[in-house]
Design a protein around this nucleic acid. Structure first.
Length: 433
DNA sequence: TCTGGGGTCCTAGGACCC
DNA sequence: TCTGGGGTCCTAGGACCC
């Protein structure tokens, strides 16, 4: 048996914990650059704000409907997530943190009334952390996901599901008929692993609900679609195909990409930006304990600005010696962006991707048969830099080629940023009588 | 004027090997 | 006129997830 616990409208709920005046009001959290809505309170959903809606298209609601929009504050959400996860882990013996706002818990060996335990966990999370959650349980991960969907919608959309399943839904505790009825009420597109493309194809073949897929022959499903969808069908019918992954595997590739706050025309600024991205990616790489054997840089103009001349290009470089050294990766990124850059374009976005990752220590050396194109790695310097930044905050010590003047011309737009309430002294709330 | 970021897995096809 | 069989690796593209 598995449980799936997730925070409702997670980013919006995190903001509300520290600004209770936002309760009951339509609220959206914006993506980087204050571009589009990536989280919405129930009230914002009721106003018709779509997931991913660009701010400029919903800006009229700020005045007309009292909509509040805030810039994304990932430092806050990450910290709130850690607190939520540590409580949620208590529901069973093993936990898989699946994303910033949801986790699976293996309920094997957990005794007693699971529904009751789940309800108590919800209450504890609400009291200790202030985040509303929903919990779904089922004999497979896909069924736990589906139960979570039911738990969320039984309350939000009256009539969609029986209201006794609101907030906590345990598909293992209902009879076969009731379970089939619930699956029959769930549209195929809501199933975990079925995206828009597959949903359209499945519907065209007469499969409209989760129950239809659960009853489909997995051999036929695999032949017509894929082994992935066949597993989904099996999982829906109660045969577990997916296990709990409680050890997070190292990433196979790692990226840092950003849209610019303003279009970038000049090469020096572009170099600065990709150097910054390369350093950030290198930091992530060192945290994971890996080195990269390949680096890719891309730059592109905005596809939304049809009137502009478009340019989109990428280029990668095999690193002669796999590394996680910021200075080496910055040097490589600079060389690549010089190749890619074409004057006369308004660049809107750039990024650095590190690929062909492997654990530190497994790197193969290389005979020095050719002149080195890149500087040598400086492990001691990187260690010192990470230690200083750990202690004094990110960016305290950085590679000079990432730019000395702050704020950067190409930097992110974050006009509506809320304080880092839980992770910075300056963000601490002050109580007054 | 203004449109996010970061991942994974699977499959098909081509290159290449013996 | 006749032209094998079987395998691996890599890449690009497509689908999905949050």
């Amino acid at each position: 048996m598995f449980a799936l616990i997730d925070g409702n409208n997670f980013y919006a709920s995190c903001e509300r914990v520290f600004r209770p005046s936002l309760n009951g009001r339509p609220l959206v959290v914006l993506s980087n650059n204050d571009g589009c809505a990536i989280a919405r309170s129930e009230e914002a959903k009721a106003l018709g704000v779509r997931m991913g809606a660009p701010l400029f298209k919903i800006a009229h609601l700020l005045d007309e409907a009292g909509l509040v929009a805030v810039s994304a504050n990932f430092e806050l959400y990450g910290d709130m997530s850690e607190r939520l996860m540590s409580l949620a882990a208590g529901l069973g013996h093993r936990q898989e943190v699946y994303s910033i706002d949801e986790c699976f818990v293996d309920l094997t060996g957990v005794r007693g009334d699971l529904t009751l335990r789940a309800q108590r966990l919800r209450a504890r999370i609400a009291q200790w952390i202030g985040i509303p959650t929903c919990i779904g349980m089922g004999s497979t991960k896909t069924l736990a996901k589906l139960a979570n969907h039911i738990a969320k919608n039984a309350e939000r959309k009256p009539g969609s599901y029986p209201v006794e399943h609101a907030q906590v839904c345990h598909l293992g505790a209902v009879g076969v008929d009731a379970r089939e009825a619930l699956l029959g009420q769930t549209a195929i597109a809501e199933v975990w692993g079925v995206g828009p493309r597959l949903a359209a194809q499945l519907q065209a073949e007469g499969l409209h609900t989760a129950l239809d897929l659960a009853r489909a022959n997995p051999v036929v499903v695999q032949r017509r679609w894929s082994v992935v969808l066949a597993k989904t069908a099996l999982e829906l019918s109660g045969t577990a195909c997916l296990g709990l992954e409680d050890v997070t595997p190292d990433k196979q590739q790692l990226a840092c990409t950003r849209s610019f706050g303003q279009p970038v025309h000049a090469l020096p600024e572009l170099i600065e930006a990709v150097n910054e991205f390369a350093s950030r990616a290198a930091e992530k790489l060192r945290r994971q304990g890996s080195v990269a054997a390949q680096l890719m840089v891309f730059i592109r103009t905005s596809p939304f600005r049809r009137q502009d001349r478009q340019h989109s290009a990428h280029r990668s470089l095999a690193l002669p010696v796999p590394t996680h050294d910021s200075t080496v990766l910055c040097e490589a990124a600079s060389a690549l962006v010089r190749h890619l850059y074409q004057p006369g374009h308004a660049y809107a976005k750039a990024g650095v991707m590190l690929m062909d990752l492997r654990p530190v220590g497994l790197e193969q050396g290389r005979l020095a048969l050719e002149p080195a194109l890149l500087p040598p790695s400086k492990p001691a310097l990187m260690q010192a830099m990470d230690a200083i930044n750990q202690r004094h905050g990110r960016g305290s010590l950085h590679v000079a080629s990432t730019g000395a003047t702050h704020p950067r011309a190409w930097g992110m737009k974050q006009a509506r940023k809320t304080p880092a309430y839980t992770t910075r002294w300056a963000g601490l709330l002050v109580a007054s009588a």
